[in-house]
Amino acid sequence: MHELSVVIEVVKTVEEFAKKNGVTRIDRLVLQIGELSSMIPAYIEECFPCAVDGTTLESTRLEIEILPGNARCRACGKTFNLLENKGACPACGVKDAEILSGREFMIKEIVAC
């Protein structure tokens, strides 16, 4: 349910955008989801048909790009992927890093036709 409410929000935003730009048919919608965001791509895909039902996005294909969850170690400054390294800096082992990317949930673009 968490994903559904957010996908409905996405559909609203895209519809608004399409209306403003005179787009009537959308072939593809591209979303970007960070690895560290609380959104699960598989669930987004699952509830997408339900969220677009009866909207201008009804026949739109969904594409999801994953953004890496990268962080910078606060102790030694190394940049690394948080998930691959289980949160610990691969250079010095310290588990205290500042998140640089991966929390995003973005509507990247649409392909209109």
Partner: peptide, 10 residues
């Protein structure tokens, strides 16, 4: 087909 960038946080 026309790619239109939205770049907007959900």
């Amino acid at each position: 087909f026309k790619v239109m960038e939205i770049k907007k946080s959900v």
